[in-house]
Design a binder for these strands. Sequence first.
RNA 1: GGAGAGAUGGCCGAGCGGCUGAAGGCGCUGGUUUGCUAAACCAGUAUACGGGGACAACCUGUAUCGAGGGUUCAAAUCCCUCUCUCUCCGCCA
Length: 438
Amino acid sequence: MLDLRYVAQNFDEVVARLSRRGTVELGEFKRLFGERRELNVQIEKLRSESADVGALLSPGKQPVTREVRGTSYVQPLGDEQKNELRALSKELKEKSKDLEGKLKEIESQLDQILLTVPNLPHASVPEGRSSEQNVVVRVVGERPQFDFEPKPHWEVGESLGILDFERASKISGARFAVYKGLLARLERALASFMIDVHTSRGYTEVLPPFLVNRASMTGTGQLPKFEEDSFKTCGDPELFLVPTAEVPVTNLHRDEVLEGDQLPIKYCAFTPCFRREAGSYGKDTRGLIRQHQFQKVELVKFCRPEASYDEHEALTADAEEILKRLGLHYRAVSLSAGDLGFSAAKCYDLEVWLPAQQTFREISSCSNFEDFQARRANIRFKPSAKEKPQFVHTLNGSGLAVGRTVVAILENYQQKDGSVLIPEVLRPYMGVDAIRKA
RNA sequence: GGAGAGAUGGCCGAGCGGCUGAAGGCGCUGGUUUGCUAAACCAGUAUACGGGGACAACCUGUAUCGAGGGUUCAAAUCCCUCUCUCUCCGCCA
């Protein structure tokens, strides 16, 4: 979330920057902020008074002198004075309790607003309201040529007998798939390959819980706004199935103060991801593109604020490395302000070429969240032993979405005879050079 | 599922109704001493939000001893509820 005081002090600027995304939802922020300050001052005054009363009534080692309500009291006190002060203290407590109630109400309203306001887009983010205005920053590799009509991945998979949507829907419903034989192995091979590449490049592998609590979901920005997108366990304890490893991995350091020289911290994690895909009823109903459950290797970084944009480029390059090694044609696009995710200040999508649809599809999304998640999740670092802790910057990106990588391989490496070649780098993991009809 | 124990500052650990933001230790920072290292000694060492000051140093107010309520003139300390952690038994893997 955004910093309360920053918003208050730079209100117009914040509104202007948010409006690049489209809607601005700051509601009654200004009025509430003013009331909050006023109440705070009043409450502190009352408390200070009652602390004086407390000191006078307490049998301390040294005699105490205090001025309360214009009268000065000197210990030792007479009974009458004591009774006076006791009565006053009660009154003060009641008053401040009353005001505290009001303050609480206002703070929760302010919180509500801040928790649902998205991050400010970075200056380098392209102008625009939708994906139409995303800017292609580079195109890598060559579009594969086919001397036959390339089939969509679901046809490739089903005709090889390694992909089964019908049985998946019997077991679970729409938007699920069953992989069999070498396709199941391909998923495993890809995950291992990706993790091996990333760990060799300085990422620490993490296997986190796949069920997380509400605080974790709030920390990374999924809640409170997008609850309908997630799967939730019923009752007690209330847990959410992770929509991405970003959630558990970023929350590894929630409420922690990291040492400055530990940074940057780089993690990678292979996990399943669960998404309701609410509101996407007509979209991508065929194939593996949009599933309720898929697997992903995620990269997560914690770094110093001044390093985050360099780290963002580097993280994107790390994700791209996988595509390059797999020989897949792709492009990188910088998302326009309006297409940016809720928590992101800047985001590159990597889009892989899918020949059957003659289109690029998102296979990775690499975001810099600046301190937006760190503030929600309270993740700080000490720049040096002497300095105060400050919020880290967090980043993450898919490296890559494994399910969609399977799609890309099935489509780009399909052969005229219906078989699928295995990219060179995966062969040690697969033990075969192609998937052929049994 | 049954029976217990506990949650205090970066960490360990006292305190169990009243100048206690909280002893002591460790760690950390600065200094002294020292051929280097080590050690010893001295000093400093929480965070947040207000007010003053130059959005500096600094001064000052308030809050914070797992969370929330209650008792009391006064709560880290007493009571209630919740959360989490740990130990033992059972159960499952």
